[in-house]
Simulated assay, not measured.
Amino acid sequence: MLQRLKLTVAYDGAAFAGWQSQAHRNTVQDTLEHAFQKISGTRIRVHGAGRTDAGVHALAQCAHVDLPDRRLSPERWTNALNSTLPPAIRILRCQFTPQNFHARFSATGKLYRYRIWAAPILPPLEFGRAWHISSPLDVDLLKTAGKKFVGTHDFAAFAANRGKKEQDTMRTIWSVQIRRSGPRIAIEIAGDGFLYKMVRLMVGAMTQVALNKMNVDEIVGWLKSGHADGSRFVAPAKGLYLVKIWY
Rank of each mutant, 00 (worst) to 15 (best):
T52M: 09
V139K: 02
H34R: 15
K110T: 03
H57P: 05
A35C: 12
A210K: 04
T152G: 05
L67R: 11
S231D: 14
T144K: 15
A159V: 02
W222L: 01
P87V: 08
H24A: 14
S83K: 15
I187T: 03
K238H: 11
T27Q: 01
N82W: 05
G182W: 01
L7F: 12
C62W: 14
R43I: 11
R43M: 12
C62V: 15
P87R: 09
L141D: 09
P98T: 14
S135H: 14
A63Y: 05
D138N: 15
T172E: 12
V234W: 00
L142G: 03
V150W: 03
A159E: 10
G204E: 00
V176P: 01
S106D: 03
T172A: 04
D192Q: 11
R104G: 02
L195Q: 09
N212W: 09
R184I: 00
A156C: 08
A80W: 07
Q167R: 15
G204Y: 01
G163M: 04
V150M: 04
A35V: 11
V56E: 10
G193A: 07
K6Y: 07
S135M: 13
A157S: 12
H227G: 00
V209D: 02
R200F: 02
E126P: 01
T152L: 08
A17D: 14
H102N: 15
I245P: 08
A103F: 10
Q37I: 03
G226F: 05
D168P: 02
L137C: 00
Q208K: 13
S83I: 01
P123N: 10
A160F: 00
R179G: 05
K224W: 02
D30L: 13
F127H: 13
N161T: 07
A60N: 12
E188P: 01
A210H: 07
G151A: 10
V46P: 05
Q208W: 02
A156K: 10
W222C: 03
Y114G: 03
S135G: 06
T52E: 10
A210M: 08
A210V: 08
G182P: 05
D66E: 15
F96L: 11
H153V: 01
T52R: 04
D217L: 13
H47K: 12
L32K: 07
G13W: 00
P74A: 06
A145N: 05
M1Q: 14
A107D: 04
F16M: 06
R162P: 14
G191Y: 06
A130G: 02
I245G: 06
V209L: 00
L240N: 06
A103S: 15
A210Q: 07
H57I: 04
V28A: 07
S83H: 15
I116H: 08
R232C: 09
R171A: 06
K197W: 11
V203F: 00
P120A: 06
V243A: 06
H24G: 06
S175A: 15
Q208S: 13
